[in-house]
Nucleic acid binder design. Structure first.
Lengths: 140, 140
DNA sequence: ATTTCAATCTGTAATGAGTTCAATTACATA
DNA sequence: TATGTAATTGAACTCATTACAGATTGAAAT
């Protein structure tokens, strides 16, 4: 088990190196968290989750790493929640649904090409998001 | 001119009354601003714009009024900008483009039915938004 | 090994949007 | 005019995020 974890972390190390990112322990742990938890976490959620493994961890470091990962195209920055930024491990384009009651964000598998445009009305598109808000299945 | 303004403000008064909203001077002024400025303003923008006409105006009042207007379906709450909430006078469904350079938000006239769904994957939809971010025509 | 240097990390302080709350004001009705 | 409810005000507060300066790391050079 320890060996298996070590192997997984080494894999992440290689992934980061291949993207020209120095694989610090903190970056590896954030990447590992994002890869294994598709819960659209906030900075605070990630901090609480991994600070146990890194006693000296600073929240500022999580901010730095996520901004850096966003610039490198590893995570997507979701502004669907007006209280705090949420982050998403980048995969195939999809929409999001945020519950106004419980705050959870769900992936929505939507057939739509709006996320694939390069330009809209003359403006250069870098990010595209389709966001729904309401009451989720569980809270209904 | 003074008479014409007075007529316009009286029209707004009637609109608010018809929606079961007590037409205070502050509410009339915020409604008037939103109707005439389609620039997706923040609370601060509106405050700066109309506080000249209402010397005692408090920013808390703008927050109260906009939240109330949102509940009444008069304005739409845009969370596209992670720094501050922006507000949109509700009209026919459309998408938005926000420029990462100048911060301006543009209306995008998009043929898409994603905004018209009542349910997605079992979740009850109350709001739907299609947001683009990038570099606007002017900043390119 | 030691030095060097840049990149990264850390923690504190500052910023600023948004909320809370108690006191004041406005307004409709009796 | 009196009364009660709703709306407004402003100060204090919360809390996510940023700024910044000092400490640490790690790789390359000597």
């Amino acid at each position: 088990m320890v060996n298996k974890n070590k192997t997984l972390l080494n894999e992440i190390k290689e992934i980061l190196k291949s993207k020209d990112i120095k694989p610090s322990y903190q970056r590896i742990m954030v990447y590992n968290y994002m890869k294994n938890h598709r819960n659209h976490p906030s900075v605070d959620t990630i901090f609480k989750a991994i600070s146990g493994s890194i006693p000296t961890l600073s929240k500022t470091t999580i901010y730095n790493i996520l901004n850096f990962f966003a610039k490198k195209g590893i995570v997507d920055t979701l502004t669907i929640d007006k209280n705090e930024v949420r982050y998403d491990f980048i995969k195939t384009p999809h929409a999001h649904f945020m519950c106004k009651i419980c705050g959870e964000i769900f992936d929505i598998h939507l057939k739509s090409d709006v996320c694939l445009k390069d330009f809209v009305e003359g403006h250069k598109v870098e990010d595209a998001h389709v966001d729904f808000k309401g009451v989720c299945k569980g809270c209904l």
